[in-house]
Write a protein that binds this DNA or RNA. Structure first.
Length: 339
DNA sequence: GTAACATCCCGCCATA
DNA sequence: AATATGGCGGGATGTT
């Protein structure tokens, strides 16, 4: 349990090969929370450690290896909260007896255990989740339920708490989850403040941000327009195949196109056209790796007029073709789910 | 790769 | 007087 005044030790547990973004995101959230508290003249509440449970690469979303981990089979730092991140490594690790046993021991020692996305897989393998409600990435819900029938997999939930175990669907990286924890520990105001600062951080790297476009929007909650745009951006994300031109969107929220574009940029941080494009790329990226739909179908579903348009968008923003992207990120030796 | 075409989006200014 | 809105022009960017 989080107790004010005491340093709360958070251990972020990666299982390579893992996406570095799932790790950097949460780390930055806790760091920001510390910074905010420190600015008030108090002691920083979190002490964050990154640990890897196995040897292997941590890579960026675009597949570029960032750093190799040597693994931590030996001593593990004491933790108050253990976060198990998801990714390919997490899904593949269920077959690794030694790793699972190690994780089981760790979980028994830690009062709060959290899984991000497919981090639920190795946790489930420990058997500690038997009989508990669990959430995971939507594309892997059925797989999780099939592999571990003793679990009660909640396919709709974004965040599920059962006892000391918490799991998140984590469609958008671990940042959301880290923010949720900070909110739990330190209150909504601080979490929002962290989120707002994070937006600044997220924008700084420039270029194609790998972070959830959705989150950038959510982080702005609290400003006037955010309320107005909240439902709109949610609708956009759910209806990518619709007409999402500035004109159409402006009409939806009963504004003139000019004013809509201006207010949108002020509230969200990027223009509506750019926002929609990013969301489409993000959605198709996920669909390419998580489904078997032909490229043309993915393009159509994500709102690209033609497959060629999607190809160009990928080339411009990700430097690879959709085909290439799929081939590189398709999960090896994991059964694909029919969808 | 190029060309024609469409859309976006920002500065500027009148208007409310 | 100060601020928010809406229309217009056109260069930049994206689409076909």
């Amino acid at each position: 349990m989080f107790t004010p005044g005491h340093r709360h030790r958070v251990v972020l547990l990666a299982i390579p090969p893992a996406q570095a973004i799932d790790i950097v995101g949460p780390l930055e959230v806790f760091a920001q929370a510390n910074a905010q508290i420190t600015a008030r003249g108090q002691e920083p509440p979190y002490e964050t450690t990154l640990a890897a449970l196995a040897a292997g690469p941590l890579e960026t979303s675009s597949g570029v290896p960032m750093l190799a981990s040597h693994g931590l089979f030996g001593r593990m730092p004491k933790a108050d909260t253990l976060i198990v991140s998801g990714g390919r490594g997490a899904r593949l690790s269920v077959a690794d007896e030694r790793l699972v046993a190690r994780l089981r021991t760790l979980c028994r020692q830690v009062p709060r255990v959290v899984s991000i996305c497919t981090g639920a897989f190795p946790l489930a393998a420990t058997g500690l989740l038997d009989g508990r409600r669990v959430a995971t990435h939507w594309a892997h819900c059925a797989d999780l339920a099939a592999r571990f029938p003793a679990l009660e997999v909640d396919a709709d939930a974004i965040f599920v708490s059962d006892g000391k175990f918490h799991s998140s669907a984590g469609v958008t990286a671990g940042i959301d989850l880290a923010l949720a924890l900070v909110e739990q520990d330190l209150g909504r105001d601080l979490a929002l403040s962290v989120a707002r600062h994070l937006v600044v951080f997220l924008k700084r790297p420039g270029g194609q941000s790998q972070f959830s476009t959705h989150l950038m929007m959510g982080a702005e909650a609290g400003t006037h327009d955010a309320d107005r745009f909240n439902s709109l951006t949610a609708w956009i994300a759910a209806n990518l195949a619709e007409d999402l031109s500035v004109e159409a969107l402006a009409h939806r929220v009963a504004m003139s196109p000019r004013n809509f574009a201006r207010r949108f940029r002020a509230a969200i941080g990027t223009g509506p056209g750019d926002y929609v494009r990013r969301l489409r790329i993000e959605a198709s990226r996920r669909m390419l790796t998580d489904s078997d739909l032909p490229v043309g179908a993915v393009a159509a579903r994500c709102g690209f007029g033609t497959p060629e348009t999607m190809r160009l968008a990928f080339q411009r923003h990700l430097r690879v073709s959709p085909q290439e992207f799929r081939e590189r990120f398709r999960l090896p030796s994991m059964p694909q789910l029919a969808s």
